[in-house]
Simulated assay, not measured.
Amino acid sequence: MESNMKIRQMAIIGVITAVICILGPLSIPIGVVPITFTNLAIYFALYTLGMRKGTLSYIVYMLIGLAGLPVFSGFSGGLPKLVGPTGGYIIGFIFMALIGGCFIDKFWDKWYLSLVGMVIGTAICYLFGTVWLAYQAHMSLGAAFSVGVIPFIMGDMIKILIAALVGPQIRKGLMKANLFRVSF
């Protein structure tokens, strides 16, 4: 019975990773940093899997991209993407998942507290991305913030609000179907 549960967990992680791989490459180029749906996919992964497994699904996605499969924004992949101007955001997503996932696991039924966690996680992701963008593009932190954060705040807040409102419904459905466990 225990091995069946592990197989089920691995399969669900695989499915969620596939969803991130599908949404991750979809992007709207608006400059050095494109608009992507990766963060929205991660938020839903956290509601579906919880912090640990949701973060793991993102890390698997990241490793798939690093192996060269075109799952990153603009259907790109490989090490050059990680060490390029947007690599800090790719790393920052790990911390976004850990922080947002911690809040979602504790407060999944209180959308406003989950929202706070996702905002804090997104801010940390912005920090990693801005510092790396400034370094890679040889620009000031202010300039990197202007091109790598300011244009994305409104869209990311909308994605966070969508996740905070829809995510609890997803988790309730999974719990009702006995597909989500706190120890999951």
Rank of each mutant, 00 (worst) to 15 (best):
S3M: 02
S3G: 00
S3W: 00
S3D: 03
S3V: 03
N4T: 00
K6Y: 08
I7W: 00
R8W: 04
M10L: 15
A11D: 00
A11I: 12
I13C: 08
I16G: 00
I16S: 01
V19K: 03
C21H: 05
C21I: 08
I22G: 02
L23R: 06
L23I: 04
G24L: 06
S27Y: 05
P29H: 07
P29T: 07
I30V: 15
I30H: 05
V32A: 14
I35S: 01
I35K: 00
T36V: 15
F37V: 10
T38G: 11
L40M: 14
I42Y: 06
F44D: 03
A45M: 09
Y47F: 15
G50W: 13
L56E: 10
S57M: 07
S57R: 10
Y58G: 08
Y58M: 09
I59Q: 06
V60F: 10
M62I: 13
L63D: 04
G65V: 11
V71R: 03
F72Q: 06
S73D: 03
P80G: 10
K81N: 08
L82Q: 04
V83S: 11
G88D: 06
G88S: 09
I91G: 03
G92H: 08
G92R: 04
F93K: 00
F93W: 13
I94A: 05
I94L: 08
F95E: 03
G100M: 04
C102I: 01
I104S: 04
D105K: 06
K106L: 15
F107C: 03
W111G: 12
W111V: 01
W111H: 04
Y112T: 11
Y112F: 14
L115H: 08
V116I: 15
M118C: 12
V119S: 04
V119A: 12
I120H: 01
T122N: 14
I124T: 14
Y126K: 10
F128C: 14
G129N: 12
T130D: 05
T130N: 05
W132V: 08
Q136N: 14
Q136L: 02
H138A: 13
M139H: 01
L141G: 10
L141H: 07
A144I: 14
F145Y: 15
P151V: 10
P151Q: 07
I153R: 02
I153P: 08
G155K: 13
D156V: 05
M157H: 01
I158V: 15
I160T: 12
L161G: 14
I162T: 11
A164I: 11
V166Q: 01
G167C: 10
I170E: 03
R171W: 08
R171K: 15
R171P: 04
G173K: 13
M175R: 13
M175Y: 02
F180H: 11
R181F: 12
R181Y: 12
S183Y: 12
S183H: 13
F184M: 14
